[in-house]
Amino acid sequence: MNRQKGKGRYGNTAVYTLLVLLSAFWVFPFLYLVMQSFRGEPGVTTDYFFPKVWTVRNYVELWTDTQFFNFRKWYLNTLLVSLAVAVIQSAVVLSTSYALSRLRFKMRRPLMNLILLLGMFPGFMSMTAVYFVLKELALTQSLVGLVIVYTAGSAMQYYISKGFFDTLPKSLDEAARIDGANRHTVFFKIILPLAKPIIVYTVLVAFTMPWGEYMYSSLLMLGNSDKFNVALGLQQMITRENSYRYFTRFCAGAVCVSLPNAILFFLLQRYYVEGVTGGAVK
């Protein structure tokens, strides 16, 4: 008994060491990012971790000095796009997954197989063709075009919310239908109110996606810095020519981009975990 206890304590010490070590690894880059965003000295790298000159100039210039890097505009662009994507993508994902989960129709299986098949093609193999389609619709160099590209394939992300809808008992629908509700009413009045976790998850994922998206915005907005999103814009600050002067400003920008995402994420973490966990095991 005594031996057992001693062994447990010994094991816990090992586990704590592991956790502390790994936590340091995980947190170090973020701590570094925040430190650098307050650094007054120029240059990409210093030989020390904590800045010698502390300043908020990087943040002030980030938002006010728009001569080369119009961060304000990029931030607004990204915010607008992500709001639109959050609304449209959630609507598409939820209606697709509801239809595939709770309705029965002839094309259901074929449609699910088609989506499975389409998912096996590399996502942006279609990049070139999508670009030309948008060009024909005169939607390149426009935020509307970007929203369309982000949301057009949303139906393919139905898996997680379908998994959730699958777990809701069928008797809910049946009871409501006996009371004379049609399927539309069942969806809006019965199922959606029960699906709060998965709705929050879907909106959260859709809203955060445009903040880090690089590929399509670089394709669509090529050379038009007025239409950049934050990922594309911030990258301009750390190119070989700019990084010496603007690296600290990049860090400030990165903090400003991460902050709303991080806050949202921590507030809604519970839903996110439920969504990811449910999606992984289904």
Partner: peptide, 23 residues
């Protein structure tokens, strides 16, 4: 009801995924 729900998703999928992949 499935037609109402799936009209838009399938349209988006066709124009921006199926068509480009075939292309």
């Amino acid at each position: 009801y499935h037609k109402t729900l799936l009209a838009l998703p399938v349209l988006g999928l066709t124009v921006f995924t199926v068509l480009p992949i075939l292309f």
